[in-house]
Design a protein around this nucleic acid. Structure first.
Length: 154
DNA sequence: GCCAACGTTGGC
DNA sequence: GCCAACGTTGGC
């Protein structure tokens, strides 16, 4: 089993939007970065767990956990010219972008704010990509050690 | 709104 | 293949 972290802007799609989705499940579409795409297409497996992270907002942080319930498949939003994630270069016959389906596992009663997590950057969370300078990946792997530590903070 | 970091694009 | 220009991310 693998562990991941998914970033989303709460104004676009926050954890409550996932909670309010049918079956608390939705597709994680709109990823337009090749590294992130490769992870979604090749490495994410049904049953993997992920952190739900709110980015680009007043209080960025980890707000809950999700389960991967469907493995990588074609991101159809790339084919819709009206969609903000439209990509004319993605061919339905040979899609460029992929998504997975995720289900809300747990919404934290207390958010683990980025500024709180940072105090562990040189200790328990050393090497955690989220805390590293210049990190911009919207989907990233999390080690079991980091996952367990963060989980213990909730 | 600013700006550092970094990915992508495109001319050569 | 190099690299400057440009666009995006995302914390602050």
């Amino acid at each position: 089993m693998n562990y991941w972290l998914f970033k989303s802007e709460p104004g676009e799609f926050g954890i409550d939007d996932l909670a309010n989705s049918p079956g608390k499940t939705n597709n994680w579409d709109g990823v337009r970065n090749y590294q992130a795409r490769n992870m979604m297409r090749d490495q994410m497996k049904k049953g993997d767990l992920g952190f739900f992270y709110h980015s680009n907002c007043e209080q960025p942080g980890i707000v809950g956990t999700i389960t991967i319930v469907r493995e990588g498949y074609s991101d159809h939003t790339a084919f819709d010219p009206k969609d903000k994630h439209f990509d004319a270069k993605s061919d339905p016959e040979n899609p460029r972008w992929f998504m997975v389906d995720v289900k809300l596992k747990r919404k934290f009663s207390t958010e683990l704010q980025l500024k709180y997590l940072k105090q562990f950057a040189d200790k328990e969370l050393q090497g955690f990509q989220l805390l590293m300078r210049g990190n911009r990946l919207s989907v990233m792997p999390v080690t079991k050690e980091h996952w367990d530590f963060i989980d213990s903070l909730v």
